[in-house]
Computed example of a mutant assay.
Amino acid sequence: MKISPSLVCPPLYGLYKAWCSTLHYNESGREEIDALWARKEPMVFALWHDELFPLMHVKRDLAIVTVVSQSQDGEYLAGVLSRLGLHTARGSSSRGGVKALLQASRMMRNQGLCGCITVDGPRGPRHKVKEGAIFLAQRTPAHVVPVRILMANSKKFEKAWDKFQLPLPFSDIHIHYGKPYTLEANSLEAEEVTREVGVLQNKLDALGKA
């Protein structure tokens, strides 16, 4: 039975805010992000699906659009994100993915937004970069910002495809923003996209060792 988002989203939003308010955040590399945003230079934040939970609590004045699944769960998530001040484009790799990325890229250009995408979502393989962030950055154009969110204490859902992490209350959260960079690719030709995917993969892998 489908429950109306108007009933589900407000308590989920309240729970998220309350949960994140207990966490102890530390951010590295944020200064360069804020400097780019002050100059209204767009960015695409690229992160792993299992690490996304704590991130939106520290978006502050960043204006962000993110791609959200067209599923019922995605409808609830979109409602919560809206209350957090985010914009959403609806779609996934299996349902309306290209349409959602096109919508997100238009919103970035027309409304001066940053993009945020879980680069191994929505179904994996885990920690393997897909093309979505490259697509957004090339079409905008925008800087790419690799992001890792490391949680000192978390509940890891081992049976989930991404081994999703839920930070335990009062745990330490370390958010590492990699150095923003621009793509070398001049087009979305397959060979160039594949090369850029490899570059982002290496940067995310290295950032996890920070």
Rank of each mutant, 00 (worst) to 15 (best):
E27H: 12
E189W: 14
A210C: 09
L36W: 12
L166S: 03
A78N: 08
A38V: 11
T88R: 09
P54Y: 05
V144N: 02
R139T: 01
W161N: 12
L207G: 03
G91F: 07
K99M: 06
H24M: 11
D172T: 10
H87E: 13
Q201A: 05
A104E: 06
V58N: 10
E75R: 13
N26S: 15
K130G: 05
E41F: 06
R195Y: 03
I3F: 01
T140R: 00
K40A: 15
G85N: 13
S187N: 00
V80M: 09
S82Y: 05
H49S: 04
L81Y: 06
G198T: 14
I134V: 04
D120Q: 00
A63L: 09
E192D: 02
K159Y: 10
P167T: 11
E75N: 11
K40G: 15
K156M: 05
D120F: 04
K179L: 14
A38N: 13
D172N: 15
G29D: 08
S69I: 05
A46Q: 01
C9H: 12
K17L: 12
N153W: 07
L77M: 14
S187I: 04
H174V: 13
C9I: 15
N110R: 11
F53Q: 15
V58C: 12
E192W: 01
Y181V: 07
D172Y: 12
L52I: 09
